[in-house]
């Protein structure tokens, strides 16, 4: 009888142990599965919202008057998602989308900053995602309503700023290692604290098939798949400057600035200092597109004020002696010239 009890006990313990082990293995698979599913659910939510956004004109977006904090779960693929969508604070034609996908107990929170496209086909097939982030599960725990979303938006803005600030540094660092073909050399260059023995640099391949990789030629660093330097077209820029209606004096100034910048960009490109050339090109474009037109507007306002003052002076000419008239006219011209110079000096070209 004792033997039977022992056998049954051993069998019971063995079965229990096996079931427990299987449950542990199953839990890992379930976690991976739930993670991928919650991500897919959140992505589906983003796509639905982007489709709805692009479906209407910018003025007719459904959250124009107030953000849409949709806290009630939308069923999707065996799970659900909630979302928040609002205009990007301080930006036009840009939308912030937050979607939290949930599958069983796993949650993923996705952030997408989307540039509104006024072209339905392009908007739907290739939406302009200007920034995306996948937040950890801890960040996905809270609700997607006003104070929480504001805090999350501030975090995203910090990341966007950090990205903008470090772009040049990344390009410079990458230029140092772009032509390395050995990960050991890259690790050493980056100063990683990793034992470098036994790190393969080539892919395994059948005998007779070479997997040797030639060093990458030094070329402009791609930014998001492409560099700005391929867009470096002097002819187009001359054409653009000519079409903006700059007054002749400021147009001459811009021509001088353009020639100087083009020469420096060409020299830097010839010396393979592509990141420096790209940065200068970007700065020059930023000056042209953001400052030059505004400077011209200020100059035009100054000219209109000067012309109005001259007209007023002409109206009073009969009561003035010729010398007084000439002196006041010269003073007006001098003040006008000084104002023009101060406007240009306040917006210096790179």
């Amino acid at each position: 009888m004792g033997l039977v009890v022992v056998i049954i006990t051993v069998l019971f313990v063995a079965v229990f142990a096996i079931l427990n082990l299987m449950r542990g293995a199953g839990a890992q698979v379930s976690y991976s599965d739930a993670h991928v599913r919650s991500l897919a659910i959140a992505e589906s939510g983003v796509n639905l919202l982007v489709s709805r956004l692009m479906d209407a004109t910018w003025e007719d977006r459904w959250f124009r008057d107030r953000p849409d904090f949709h806290g009630s779960p939308v069923a999707c693929e065996g799970g659900n998602f909630i979302y928040a969508i609002q205009d990007t604070p301080g930006a036009s034609f840009t939308v912030d989308i937050w979607v939290r996908g949930e599958y069983r107990s796993t949650r993923r929170l996705l952030f997408y900053r989307v540039k509104y496209e006024d072209l339905l086909f392009k908007g739907l097939t290739s939406p302009g995602f200007s920034f995306t982030a996948d937040l950890p599960e801890t960040a996905a725990a809270g609700s997607l309503a006003a104070p929480a979303v504001d805090s999350l938006t501030a975090k995203m803005n910090d990341l966007v700023d950090r990205k903008a600030q470090t772009r040049g540094a990344a390009a410079d660092r990458w230029e140092e290692i772009a032509d390395q073909v050995n990960p050991t050399a890259i690790l050493t260059t980056l100063g990683a604290n990793v034992p470098t023995a036994g790190i393969p640099a080539r892919s395994q391949a059948p005998a007779g098939v070479s997997t040797a990789v030639a060093p990458r030629p030094k070329e402009p660093v791609p930014a998001g798949g492409r560099s700005n330097l391929p867009n470096y077209d002097k002819g187009k820029l001359w054409d653009w400057i000519g079409r903006q209606g700059f007054d002749s004096e400021y147009a001459a100034y811009l021509h001088g600035v353009a020639i100087r910048n083009f020469t420096e960009i060409d020299v830097k490109s010839a010396l393979e200092k592509y990141s420096q050339a790209e940065r200068q090109f970007k700065a020059f474009l930023r000056f042209l597109f953001r400052h030059a037109l505004r400077v011209q507007a200020l100059r035009t306002q100054a000219r209109l004020r000067y012309e109005a003052a001259c007209d007023e002076l002409d109206a009073q000419a009969a009561s003035l002696t010729p010398e007084e008239y000439q002196a006041r006219k010269a003073a007006l011209l001098s003040a006008y010239r000084q104002e023009l110079a101060s406007i240009v000096n306040a917006n210096p070209a790179p």
């Binding site: 920034f131 990205k163 990960p183 980056l190 034992p195 023995a197 790190i199 393969p200 892919s203």
Partner: peptide, 24 residues
């Protein structure tokens, strides 16, 4: 091209190097 390692630039421009190392 194909390599046994991957280098990528992440959302804040940090560089990620993913590589193999032999386990003796």
């Amino acid at each position: 091209s194909t390599l046994p390692y991957l280098v990528l630039r992440d959302l804040v421009n940090d560089l990620h190097l993913i590589f193999l190392r032999k386990d003796d």
